[in-house]
């Protein structure tokens, strides 16, 4: 009885796992960043990756979303290897990296409209205007992105988190960089809302995470 309850619990736990890594090793420029890394993130789970510069946080996140190949080990999305289900995986993922992914010559509206269409999200232009207003970017919607400040550019890029409703996993690499305090709290709230609605988040940050939510920490060490 106890055994079957345990088994049931394990199966239940497994179905809740959104992303898991098994024996993951990554080598970059002949340097082993980390090896035999194992972890999993469940629905509503927040994995907070910590470590000094050069420890491999960005590389880890890039491996998790399939941009970078790992030396060995595998990454599973809902129990299947990410490379075998890449289109459904990408449909449910938002990756936010160091590079904003915005073309400097196009306006915020053009950039975001293109992004939504490219990621097959049904978002109207009015919704984009609304979200940009929420992000305190009123009046800047139609300027080329290159004319905005660094923080404003980050805000435009972060608007994607508002648009991808099919996402159940966010991978955020230093999302707070260049944001002011109001931007940070806006983003914190958005992340908390997403987690409460059952989404999973993997993120790195050098700032302390003042988020009123249970988090799982993964500490990477700098290796020589």
């Amino acid at each position: 009885m106890l055994l079957s309850a345990r088994l049931f619990f394990h199966i239940l736990r497994d179905t809740l796992v959104v992303l898991s890594a098994h024996d993951l090793s990554v080598v970059k420029s002949d340097r082993l960043l980390f090896d035999k890394l194992n972890f999993s993130v469940e629905q509503g789970g927040l994995l907070y990756v910590k470590g000094p510069n050069g420890a491999g946080k960005t590389s880890l996140l890039r491996v998790l979303c399939g941009l970078l190949d790992s030396e060995s080990g595998e990454v599973n999305f809902k129990q299947q290897a990410i490379h075998s289900v890449s289109s459904s995986f990408h449909h449910q993922l938002v990756y936010f990296g160091h590079k904003a992914g915005l073309n400097l010559r196009l306006s915020a509206i053009e950039n975001l409209d293109f992004w939504c269409k490219q990621h097959e999200q049904n978002v109207s232009i009015e919704q984009i205007y609304q979200t940009l207003a929420e992000l305190q970017l009123v009046g800047l919607e139609e300027l080329p992105i290159g004319h905005l400040s660094a923080g404003q550019q980050r805000r435009v890029a972060l608007a994607r988190l508002w648009f991808k409703s099919s996402a159940c996993l966010w991978i955020l690499d230093e999302p707070f960089t260049a944001l002011d305090t109001s931007g940070i709290s806006l983003l914190m709230n958005k992340i908390a809302d997403f987690l409460r609605s059952g989404g999973a988040v993997v993120m790195t940050s050098h700032q302390d995470l003042e988020l009123d939510y249970p988090k799982q920490e993964l500490v990477l060490e700098y290796r020589i």
Binding site: S86, S88, L93, G97, Q118, H119, E120
Partner: peptide, 17 residues
């Protein structure tokens, strides 16, 4: 070149197209 440098290419690779 531009898409690579500003990160649009990453987003394109992760768009599922």
């Amino acid at each position: 070149r531009d898409d690579f440098q500003d990160g649009s290419l990453e987003q394109l690779l992760l768009s599922g197209s």
